[in-house]
Design a protein around this nucleic acid. Structure first.
Length: 547
RNA sequence: GGCCCGUUGGUGAAGUGGUUGAACACACAUGCCUUUCACGCAUGCAUUCAUGGGUUCAAAUCCCGUACGGGUCACCA
């Protein structure tokens, strides 16, 4: 029995050939140097910050070169698949703004190289497997998991290399007649690739991050199609898909690097050109002095949902990730504050080869700087959008009078050196709640130095009756506070006070603090004059009257 | 255990044989400024590049060994 006949027996309904598919998916018409990348997550229900790092790299590579960035759903593991996973992926891509040029979502296919869901590409894989069988480079294997276990134990005992290769590959030397017979008898089987490699020889390949790496050749007859659902394994799907979709650069996690020799052999068995590889390192976490993989279960910050729910601006997340990728990015950003990150000249060799720690302090810093540079409209719009989803009560309050809210958000904002109060939108409420009567609940007055109620009332009483005037500008306003300080026995000038503290009851700082706390209940706020101006006379009086 | 990759400060790191007395940023500390807090400014924070040896006039940078860390060896991706 010929290989061709065996192939027909296994895939009787597959009529298209490799050549047919080559014609259906011709080379992409792109300008020279344009990169084609893909984000290819498996739909397990979570999007990890490490996944986003890859997506960023993919997106950047494509967009920076006028290429194509597409999304491929790697759902060949039906056991692990989660229904809502694809929604989560789309949500994250939408959040960071990495709009794929080609994708498939809710039955809609965008792009000419689909389907973009692997489970829908079964026929294609089968045609390619059929071809391999026809040329004698693949065969059915009937070994059960139990038999494989026994084999591995024997290999361990003999201290041999573990795996299905050489003399251990029992099904490799079956005749086609035997194979046909066992298939007809209904035995379960997988399809294995027939390796021609030699473990004692070396293969080299260039990884854009790590550089040249040398491995022993692959000589394992890996499984390329599973028996349970006839779906291909990752390795096979990678080769077929990235070839047909004409991916030029494959960005994936370091965990794949040791299977590259196998991928090399697969590509060459088909005579296909190989894409370039970028294997990026994992994001790590430091705990008790030990570095470990960041984990979905133990580290909330591992999941993209953490950043979305806290309301970090996407730009901040992207900036922090770019910094991890190429640390000279920060300098570039300083010099080019208004350029898009897509214009940055990225150097793959600069990507760290050992796992990086994702630093939340750094993220906060980047984000604070970023938000501090936004104008009040942008801040308001972002806050409005965020609270609409994550804090409905606050949303109602801030949208009641948008202009007022914007003014509040603008305190010490649109100026040379703006304040840096917010790292994310969920920080905002904590900083400005006292500006809204609906939220003002002065349970805890944060009195500082002056705590006796009599003295507080003396100060406030004098201020309200003799010095308060809504129409004062900032300088007069503060001059009056100084004047009052002197009158009450407090130093109007900080330097004088520091020189001879014993001459005074306290300083103008203490007086200001009393006013501040009386009006906001907080000891730490931005510019008091602005706050009072926005609150207005009536509300100031009513807040002071509570005391 | 085999095979790969890595190891520069609390963090990300720059650095590819001599202009490094190891950049820059974050964090931290102190001080100044200041009506509070921030902001801003200034200063400090690795006598040393995991470690032992070798090559060289010269090494964080090249070579070898050791230790440690990570990855991988599935009908998971």
């Amino acid at each position: 029995m010929s290989d061709k006949e065996l192939a027909d027996l296994i895939f009787p309904n597959i009529t298209k050939t490799i050549a047919d598919y080559e014609a259906i998916y011709p080379k992409r018409d792109l300008e020279a140097g344009a990169k084609v990348t893909r984000f290819a997550p498996s739909p397990t229900g979570f999007v990890h910050i490490g996944n986003l790092l890859q997506a960023l790299l993919d997106y950047y590579l494509a967009k920076n070169s006028n290429g194509i960035f597409y999304l491929r759903n790697e759902d060949t593991d039906t056991k692990r698949e989660v229904d809502t996973a694809v929604d989560k992926i789309m949500e994250v891509l939408d959040y960071v703004g990495f709009q794929p040029d080609e994708y498939e979502y809710r039955g809609k296919i965008v792009g000419n190289y689909g389907p973009y869901v692997q489970s829908e590409r079964k026929e294609i894989y089968h045609a390619f497997i059929k071809h391999l069988i026809e040329i004698g480079r693949a065969y059915p294997c009937f070994c059960t998991t139990e038999e494989l276990d026994v084999m591995r134990k024997k290999q361990e005992a003999k201290k041999s290399r573990i795996g299905y290769y050489g003399g251990w590959a029992k099904c490799r030397d079956l005749t086609n007649e035997e194979r046909a017979e066992r298939i007809k008898n209904g035995e379960e089987y997988v399809i294995r690739f027939k390796s021609l490699g030699n473990y004692n020889r070396k293969v080299q390949f260039d990884d854009l991050v790590t550089g040249t790496i040398e491995f022993p050749e692959n000589d394992l007859d890996h499984i390329i199609m599973k028996s349970s659902d006839f779906l291909p394994t990752y390795h096979f799907a990678h080769v077929v898909d990235d070839h047909l979709m004409h991916t030029t650069h494959v960005v994936r996690g370091q965990e794949w690097i040791s299977s590259v020799p196998f991928h090399i052999e697969l590509f060459s068995a088909f005579g296909f050109e190989q894409p370039k590889y970028i294997h990026n390192s994992l994001l790590l976490k430091q705990e008790d002095g030990v570095r470990r993989k960041i984990s979905k279960r133990k580290d909330p910050e591992a999941l993209m949902s953490y950043y979305i729910e806290k309301g970090y601006p996407k730009e901040a997340v992207i900036e922090s990730l770019m910094t991890i990728l190429n640390s000279n990015y920060e300098e570039w950003r300083d010099e080019n504050p208004d350029k898009s990150y897509l214009e940055f000249e990225f150097d793959p060799h600069k990507v760290g080869t050992s796992g990086a720690l994702y630093d939340l302090d750094k993220l906060d810093n980047i984000s604070k700087n970023l938000i501090s540079r936004m104008d009040k409209e942008t801040v308001y719009n972002n806050l409005e959008e965020y609270t609409k989803v994550y804090d409905n009560e606050f949303h109602k309050i801030i949208t009641k009078n948008p202009d007022y809210t914007k003014s509040v958000l603008n305190i010490e904002r649109e100026q040379e050196k703006p304040r840096k109060d917010f790292a994310c939108w969920s920080d905002v409420k904590e900083q400005i709640w006292y500006m809204f009567d609906e939220l003002y609940q002065p349970q805890n007055f944060e009195w500082m130095k002056i705590t006796e109620l009599d003295e507080i009332k003396r100060i406030l009483g004098k201020y309200m009756t003799e010095y308060f005037d809504e129409s004062d500008d900032k300088d007069t306003w503060f001059d009056k506070i100084k004047e009052m300080s002197t009158e009450l026995g407090y130093a109007a000038n900080m330097k004088d006070y520091k020189k001879n503290p014993e001459n005074y009851l306290g300083s103008v700082a203490d007086i200001s603090t009393v006013l501040r706390v009386a009006i906001t209940s907080k000891s730490k706020t931005p510019d008091l004059y602005e706050i009072m101006r926005l609150l207005g006379k009536d509300r100031i009086i009513s807040r002071i009257d509570i005391l």
